[in-house]
Design a protein around this nucleic acid. Structure first.
Length: 911
RNA sequence: GCGGGGAUGGUGAAAUGGCAGACACACUAGCCUUAGGAGCUAGCGCCGCAAGGCAUGGGGGUUCAAGUCCCCCUCCCCGCACCA
């Protein structure tokens, strides 16, 4: 199945599909970037320079230069502060480690999809991790035992491209990139437990891919079969789909990519089709969109197989149909051009052979261009006939280009009266159209032989069968059941279910991947590598080239080895595994990266299923389907107990700029390093949360970062200029009733803010409004700055409480500034991570009075201020006594008055 | 064609059926400054001197009240697509 093949041939990973494409394009086009990066890495400059004043503007020319910090410049300079805390946290190795299950705290396992180590983080990563980090920190603060790990999806094509282009070993290139990106992540202050870090390209990880492969092989779930791959004759190798550009090889413009049949390893994911489909119904924590996409991808379709015998022979043609009830209207059989019977039926007829060739070429072209749906329907009559087993009628056998070999049986019965495509085809070639179902209300058959029907009942609701022999008068649904039963009784067919989902082709003819642990012995045939001989190490210092097939076949000491069974001559499987294998189970490994098993089952059972998985929607089908399959397989071999990997899935929107996804070619890339250098990690992260709700696309605006940076500066000033430090033993209690009205207002706003932010975390995750709420709170404090000054009459305990809680609210979003200000208040920053989340007190949050509007027929005419929760009658009277209202009432008749508590009065008037 | 998501000021966006535009950005004016690319103050949907009117892609409807609910339509983005 070519479409499936297309997809499964991808070498992409959940890390980032586009990134790899960008990498390919970038390298093909210039290679300059890599050169620079390479030089930088050779010089040992792994992390990007973090000095704010030295950062050179790149694409972001519209951003102001880093400003000089004159003596009177009281803006917050994040760099020294953030670097100070980053260094401190770096030395605190167990800072983000979870507690043992015996802590008794509810567990919370949150994972952001691991990146491909391309060399540098992009803003999409920053956004993804900012969301996950805010959530992890909130969960810590609300008393959970949090596991928050990170790793690297580090096998894959770009490393080989780098090897070819710059003569660097994939391993060295990859590990260098990991080091650089890890430094970026640390600079951004994400709360990862690095002691659990994994890199899929390391033997301690990929040996378990091999172990799983052996288990799959043992269970018959991994098998070898011929399947189609993209093949470039100039490169003499298989290409990934991303390497196919407009149907040609990306390195040989003008060389058409062929589809070649090769022996490929496949994984029987289809054994789980039904469970994968049905599981979706219960996954309420997953976006409906992702569930729908997976349902469509699995593509379950109920129908029946029916055998048509070749006229004058015993050969059978099995067709798949979902509408067996229309079989009396079948006026031809249509075969896919690739159908195995076609060669025999066509014989040596040169005209037919030519049509067939043309058809195959058209199909291939359309498929490559991705618009197979718009292909003109074409076909030819083979001159042979088949017998309809229901009525013994002879129907002609055609070959048609709209029949797909890889769906159903590659053969259909054509019912032009009740299928649009069949109708279009039949009309073009003058094939009979015979109506066999009619809506119940028009049981008047059209005149026999009538060539054209103005409106065909293609798929009619509530129809009955006609012209269908013994089945006449049955409703369609009933007929489908009865006719399938009849076919089964008579032995020429049966009800069946077809899935669009195909087995997962995992073979890659490439170097930088997990070697498949299989040997081919001259005597014993196919031999799995014994478990105790794992890992099959990927050889190093291999010359990478795309010419002449897999590089591994040229490494003698790898390729030619003795057979583990007989000691005779054997050669190794030279294919490596699809990188989607790596990412199908990595989140289990985080829970216990041990060296005696893929993971410790007891520990995995404590943490799984993941409470929250976060990543891009581009992985909705492949990665998320494969990892669901892997989970079910691991459950079936007794490794784990859960049926699904993640309770909740969140797919964040893309980061775009000027209406398009950031890309080098469009020149609209904003580098996280530049932003961190100019505004700090806190501001960069905060902006990704503030600019849009996390599920929507984020339109990057450089000036927007400036805005959140100003907020952080104001907050920094607010606290550092008048910190309300409580000395040890100083009472933290104060009497709310004695607060001045202004202080009372601040306290009210504080509790309203706590409520709003808590609601956002627990509900819809609109962190943009959480940040806005913090800004409002700070504004409310700053317009009453005298309350917080050194000679304020407000109780110090009150001031300290407001400042502390403001910082606690900030902590999930801007951890560096939170730590800095927390220490300014003399508090213990080590405890900040697990400091209890502030609780909103509804009584303190409640307003004392509200402004309500008075409407006339829904139009605002006046406003009045009344005590909160005032009785409707009181409010009605107050409204009617209002001068403006009295004036507006002149000459009008009141029809009725609606009072909405604490909101409005609507006076319905006439005249 | 099918499925999903969108459309609100100059911009990003707020809004349990109840004052549309919170919070920011940009802009304008002023203050402070040797300076301003810092900070502070004020203004800022559109029309209008004002009173007021008009405004949430377009058109209908329900309702005392609609960005929000219902029906029809347009456009944009993302999946899937000759699936029998």
């Amino acid at each position: 199945m070519a479409d499936q093949q297309k997809s499964t041939q991808k070498s992409d990973s959940p890390g980032d599909i586009l990134e790899q494409v960008v990498e390919v394009v970038r390298e093909a086009a210039e290679g300059i970037v890599e050169d620079v990066k390479g030089v930088a890495q050779e010089l040992g400059i792994v992390p990007p320079p973090a000095a704010p004043h030295a950062a050179a503007p790149t694409e972001s020319a519209s951003v102001a230069e880093p400003r000089g910090r004159a003596a009177d410049d009281n803006r917050y300079d994040p760099t020294p502060v953030e670097e100070k805390w980053a260094a401190l946290w770096e030395s605190d190795l167990t800072r983000y480690a979870p507690e043992p299950p015996s802590s008794g705290k509810p567990k919370y396992y949150v994972v952001e999809m691991l990146p491909y180590p391309s060399g540098a983080l992009h803003m999409g990563h920053v956004r993804n991790y900012a969301i996950g980090d805010a959530l992890a920190r909130y969960m810590w603060m609300s008393g959970h035992n949090v596991l928050h790990p990170m790793g690297w999806d580090s096998f894959g094509l770009p490393a080989e491209n780098a090897a070819i282009k710059h003569h660097r070993q994939p391993r060295e290139w990859t590990l260098g990139n990991i080091a650089a990106m890890k430094a970026q992540m640390k600079r951004l202050g994400f709360s990862y437990d690095w002691s659990r870090e994994i890199a899929t390209c390391l033997p301690e990880y990929y040996r378990w891919n091999q172990w799983f492969f052996l288990k799959l092989f043992e269970k018959g779930l991994a098998y070898k079969k011929k399947s189609k791959v993209n093949w470039c004759s100039d490169c003499a190798t298989v290409l990934a789909n991303e390497q196919v550009v407009d149907g040609c090889c990306w390195r040989h413009e003008g060389t058409l990519v062929e589809q070649r049949e090769l022996e490929q390893w496949s994984v029987r994911i289809t054994d789980y089709s039904e469970e994968l489909l049905q599981g979706l119904d219960n996954m309420e924590g997953w976006p409906e969109k992702v569930r729908t996409m997976q349902r469509n991808w699995i593509g379950r379709s109920e129908g029946a197989n029916v055998d048509f015998k070749l006229d004058g022979g015993e050969t059978k043609i099995t067709v798949f149909t979902t509408r067996i009830d229309t079989i009396f209207g079948a006026t031809s059989i249509q075969l896919a051009p690739q159908h195995p019977l076609v060669a025999e039926l066509v014989g040596q007829d040169p005209n037919k052979l030519a049509s067939l060739e043309q058809m195959l070429a058209d199909q291939k072209k359309a498929r490559e261009e991705g618009d197979i749906g718009s292909l003109d329907k074409k076909g030819f009559d083979t001159g042979h006939f088949a017998i309809n087993p229901f009525n013994q009628e002879r129907v002609p056998i055609w070959v048609a280009n709209y029949i797909l070999m890889d769906y159903g049986t590659g053969a259909i019965m054509s019912v032009p009266a009740h299928d649009e495509r069949d109708f279009e085809f039949a009309n073009k070639y003058g094939i009979e159209v015979r109506i066999v179902i009619l809506p119940r209300r028009e049981q008047e058959p059209p005149e026999a032989g009538q060539p054209e029907h103005p409106v065909l009942p293609f798929v009619a609701e509530d129809s009955l069968l006609i012209n269908s022999g013994p089945f006449n008068g049955l409703a369609c649904e009933e007929a489908q059941k009865k006719m399938a039963e009849y076919a089964e009784e008579q032995g020429f067919g049966k009800a069946t279910i077809t899935y669009r989902l195909k087995d997962w082709g995992i073979s890659r003819q490439r170097y930088w991947g997990t070697p498949i642990p299989i040997l081919y012995c001259e005597k014993c045939g196919m031999v799995p590598v014994p478990e105790d001989q794992l890992p099959v190490l990927l050889p190093e210092n291999v010359e990478i080239t795309l010419a002449g097939g897999s590089p591994l076949t040229r490494v003698k000491e790898f390729y030619e080895v003795p057979c583990p069974k007989c000691g005779g001559i054997a050669r190794r499987e030279s294919d490596t595994m699809d990188t989607f294998v790596d990412s199908s189970w990595y989140f289990y490994r985080y829970t216990s990266p041990i060296d005696t098993a893929p993971f410790d089952s007891d520990i995995a059972n404590y943490w799984f299923p993941m409470d929250q998985y976060i990543g891009g929607v581009e992985h909705a089908i492949l990665h998320l389907m494969y990892s669901r399959f892997w989970t079910k397989f691991m459950r079936d071999i007794g490794l784990i107990k859960n049926d699904e990997p993640a309770k909740r899935l969140f797919t964040q929107g893309m980061v775009i700029k000027n209406g398009a996804k950031m890309s080098k070619s469009l020149g609209n890339v904003v580098s996280p390093d530049d932003m961190v250098a100019r505004y700090g990690a806190d501001a960069t992260r905060l902006y990704t949360l503030f600019a849009a709700p996390p599920d929507r696309d984020l339109d990057w605006q450089d000036q927007g970062v400036e805005g959140v940076y100003r907020f952080l500066s104001r907050l920094y000033r607010f606290i550092t200029e008048n910190p309300a430090r409580m000395a040890a033993g100083e009472p933290r209690e104060y009497n709310v009733a004695e607060l001045a009205p202004d202080a009372r207002k601040v306290l009210r706003k504080l509790h309203q803010t706590i409520q709003r932010i808590t609601d956002d975390f627990q509900g819809r995750w609109h962190f943009n409004t959480s940040v806005a709420a913090m800004m409002e709170l700070l504004n409310a404090c700053m317009v009453r700055q005298e309350l917080f000054s050194q000679n304020s009459t407000a109780p110090k305990a009150f001031r300290a409480e407001v400042q502390r809680k403001l910082i606690l609210l900030l902590n999930p979003f801007a951890p560096y500034l939170a730590a800095e200000l927390w220490s300014t208040l003399g508090e213990d920053t080590h405890a900040l991570l697990r400091h209890p989340w502030p609780q909103a007190d509804p009584a303190l949050a409640k307003e004392e009075e509200v402004e309500i509007v008075v409407q006339f027929n829904g139009k605002v005419r006046s406003r009045l201020t009344v005590p909160i929760d005032a009785e409707d009658d009181t409010v009605r009277q107050a409204a009617l006594n209002d001068e403006k209202v009295k004036e507006a009432l002149l000459g009008k008749v009141i029809v009725k008055i609606i009072v909405v508590k604490n909101k409005l009065v609507n006076i319905v008037v006439r005249g």
